Simulated assay, not measured.
Amino acid sequence: MNPRQLEQALELSNIRTSLVAYRDAAQKSKWYIRFFVPGLDGRYNPGVAVVSSSKVDKLIDALNKAYKKMELLEEEKYTGEFSEDFVLRGEVSDTLSVTVSSKKSYILFWSYKKIRLHFLVSSKTNTFSRSFDSNHVKAAINILSSAENLAAKLINQL
């Protein structure tokens, strides 16, 4: 790690996330968030997505819209499947996309809806998915919303 750089893990469930704060060559304070999804085993390169500080608000806004959609889907009576993209690859990171999907499943006499938000993080050769229910999405929004304040604290330690 660069001596002018500090890294702090963020407590997102189901995906390894960290905030990295640093000073560049001109001594300007900067930060970004890194999402890391390991491959299935040692044969696969991990998926890594970097979201710069300037794109974090856009990601939070998209997650808020996705959360509202998840709430609507939980209330609605419907059959079939649903899928909608909220972040396309290249909008906040070259390797990250975010999708909400819903599927109604049947087991014997019971039916249930499975509504999930999927973080899709790409490596050079594969895309790995981590899914979240609506409670975890709300927690992720809260954590990402506090990232700027955490970055300021880390930068003050440099």
Rank of each mutant, 00 (worst) to 15 (best):
A152V: 14
E11Q: 10
E81G: 04
I155P: 13
D133A: 01
Y22G: 01
Y67H: 05
G39T: 10
R34H: 08
F82V: 03
K103V: 08
G47S: 05
S122A: 09
K103N: 15
L88E: 05
S105I: 08
E11A: 05
S122C: 13
I155K: 08
Y112T: 03
D85I: 00
S102K: 02
D61W: 04
N45Q: 09
K58I: 03
P46W: 06
L63N: 06
D94M: 07
A140Q: 12
K114P: 06
L73C: 05
I115H: 04
R34S: 09
A147K: 11
S18C: 12
V98H: 02
K65I: 00
S105T: 13
N14C: 01
A152P: 15
D85N: 06
K103I: 15
Y32W: 02
T95K: 09
D57F: 00
Y78K: 04
L96C: 04
V20G: 02
S93E: 01
R16N: 13
L10G: 11
N156D: 06
F35N: 03
T99V: 14
L19T: 00
T95R: 14
S134D: 11
E11T: 04
F36E: 08
Q5P: 13
K68Y: 04
K69G: 03
N135E: 09
N156L: 00
L158T: 05
V50P: 02
E7D: 13
T125L: 07
L12F: 09
L6D: 13
K138E: 10
N14R: 10
Y44Q: 01
L12Y: 07
I15G: 11
I33Q: 09
K28Y: 12
K58F: 07
E74S: 13
L12V: 04
K58T: 14
N135L: 06
I143E: 10
S122R: 15
I107E: 15
